[in-house]
Design a protein around this nucleic acid. Structure first.
Length: 539
RNA sequence: GCCGCUAUCGUCUAACGGUUAGGACACAGGAUUCUCAAUCCUGCAAUCGGGGUUCGAUUCCCCGUAGCGGUACCA
């Protein structure tokens, strides 16, 4: 054991440039007056937006908003190897696209807003050093000069002996090193890390209440975790208590993968002299594969990427609703009872979160999305579709742009009244909706099978007769009456047969929306033209 | 290996220790002045296994099993 004086001497030796003490830094970040929750979402700029990111980000901002608190976007860029150039922009714009926006924090690659910054961890290095120095001076941290190979060797030995792996207790060889030895290494210019001097005992357990997982019993930490890496950057373990304390965060909401290091973080809060914060560990989104659940993985699962949904034109509101539904499963019941209310009015509650991971169910997502799109007006569908197509389907974008009225009329088919169509799940699907209304789209498709039940003779008879009686101005009842009469005149058992022949001739499809409305939208000229050319084809 | 968390229909979940174990999505069947979609009705389908505690256990306790997470100078 080193003495108090020795520790102070060591701190000075390690961090001669650091003049501030923790109190100086703390005084720069005063208590907030807010009564609501102050929450932060803290992703790394790895250049990949995971749906899980949107999920956690949504939970943070929603909870902050509904308690009239503050939401913060902090960027954890302390791992230089995984960092990617436009990482921050991708996060900011990606989340913004979903309506997930923050009150404070990073807004672009270099800009930020708010009084509690910097919100980019790489800009906070001097802050971490102040606390690291303080920990060393109190004997709660120390420099460790172990090399990668040494650590590897230690690991092997620990495996052989079947003891816990890591730097702790007697395995941590620099824990109680003499100042003279440390000085010697320093003079050699050897790189070092700062490790926690853990005083916990894993034999001792204690109770802890997690806002989502509930009451849990944890064992004390005894690992001398790395706090400051040899490149001077902090690890998450050090940055987390310091940043959250300084930013005056009120609740730590983070992924469940952090749960295991909770005892370490608790020890750190204690040693730093900070009051412990309430924690809420959110379970990850899962996927089913070969009958086994596993975390939705960015490497294996294309649907883990937010871009997957953007490219297909999933409505963002729909995705948000689905994520809310995973967060609090009573959301769907609420939605059924309040079909018109805004998402903001739904109250998210910690106690409604499930403590184990939920499968990300695309089928359910589709259901929510089509129900959402069914609530939109034809014009809203048009606008959304145009926006999507502009990025992902140029041909459709052009058609939409040049035929606005016509397209809105198409989207308006069976959109009002008591028969509401729900066949658009995502905006990619509008192409399919438009096919029968544009010759240029239709021609690319196979001409549909002629209704097999009806002979060519009969088809001709139906179509020629229909051309004679066709009136674009007919009411739905008049129109249907004509079809019925036609089927009677030609001795058909079912009206459906006649309708099908017309449907195929006019749309080249056996499945379409309400034929009467389709005809109305297509217009007299086009209907006649299609029927005629279909007749020509038969001759 | 070690440590921790979790366990109800296929999926998301509900059920003061007492319910015919409920709902939603999916699926199947039926209804509907044309097909498809929609809508309505009906159906299918679950308490991981074994021990306790209790008059009574999905619920509380223990053991097992499985899944998940962690076991980094990644977050």
């Amino acid at each position: 054991m080193r003495t108090k004086e020795q520790n102070e001497q060591l701190a000075q030796l390690l961090f001669p440039e650091v003049k501030d003490c923790p109190e100086d830094v703390l005084s720069r970040y005063p208590e907030r007056g807010t009564k609501g929750m102050v929450l932060r979402f803290a992703p790394s700029p790895t250049g990949f937006m995971h749906v899980g990111n949107v999920y956690t980000g949504l939970v943070c901002t929603k909870l902050a908003n509904q308690t009239e608190g503050v939401s913060i976007l902090r960027i954890e860029d302390t791992d230089k190897e995984r960092e990617i150039k436009n990482g921050i922009t991708q996060i900011v714009t990606g989340l913004k696209g979903f309506g997930v926006e923050f009150d404070e924090g990073m807004v672009s690659e270099t800009e930020e807003k708010g009084e509690y910054g910097p919100y980019l961890q790489s800009k906070r290095l001097d802050i971490y050093k102040v606390f690291a120095k303080d920990l060393v001076s109190k004997g709660y941290a120390y420099p460790c000069f172990m090399k990668e190979e040494e650590l590897e060797e230690m690991r092997k030995k620990q495996e052989e002996l079947k003891v816990a792996i890591g730097s702790y207790g007697k395995w941590a060889k620099w824990r109680d090193a003499e100042i003279a030895d440390i000085k010697k290494e320093l003079e050699k210019g050897e790189g070092f890390v700062i490790r926690l001097y853990s005083t916990g005992d894993p034999e001792k357990s204690f109770n802890f209440k997690d806002f989502i997982k509930g009451g849990v019993t944890l064992r004390e930490n005894n690992m001398d975790a790395v706090l400051l890496k040899s490149d001077g950057y902090p690890t998450y373990h050090l940055a987390h208590p310091i940043d959250d304390k300084l930013m005056r965060i009120t609740h730590v909401i983070r992924g469940e993968e952090w749960f295991s290091s909770l005892p370490l973080h608790i020890e750190l809060f204690n040693k730093l002299g900070f009051d412990l914060l309430p924690y809420a560990h959110v379970s990850p989104l899962m996927k089913l594969e070969d009958g086994k659940k596993r975390k939705l993985s960015k490497r294996k699962d294309p649907e883990a990427a937010v871009s997957y949904y953007i490219e297909r034109g999933y409505p963002k509101k729909g995705i948000l609703e689905y994520l809310l539904n995973i967060a609090n499963s009573n959301f769907y019941d609420w939605r059924i009872q309040n079909p018109d209310k805004s998402l903001d009015e739904f109250e998210l509650k910690f106690e409604k979160f499930n403590s184990s991971g939920a499968l990300f169910d695309i089928v359910k997502l589709d259901n929510i999305c089509k129900n959402y799109i069914a609530t939109l007006s034809a014009e809203e569908v048009y606008n959304n579709a145009l926006q999507w197509a502009g990025d992902f389907d140029k041909e459709i974008a052009k058609l939409l742009e040049e035929n606005k009225k016509y397209c809105i009329a198409i989207f308006d088919i069976e959109r009002t009244g008591d028969k509401i169509r729900k066949d658009i799940v995502k905006f990619e699907d509008v192409r399919n909706q438009m096919t029968i209304f544009f010759d240029e789209l239709l021609s690319k498709e196979d001409v549909s099978d002629i209704a097999e039940r009806v002979s060519e003779e009969d088809q001709k008879a139906i179509l020629t007769k229909y051309l004679e009686i066709f009136e674009i101005g007919d009411s739905p009842d008049q129109w249907f009456e004509k079809i019925r009469n036609l089927s009677k005149d030609l001795d058909f058992e079912k009206v459906g047969e006649v309708a099908m022949v017309l449907r195929v001739a006019i749309t080249h499809r056996t499945q379409t929306p309400d034929l009467y409305q389709v005809i109305k939208v297509l217009g007299e000229g086009k209907v006649k033209e299609r029927i005629k050319s279909y007749l020509d084809l038969m001759i």
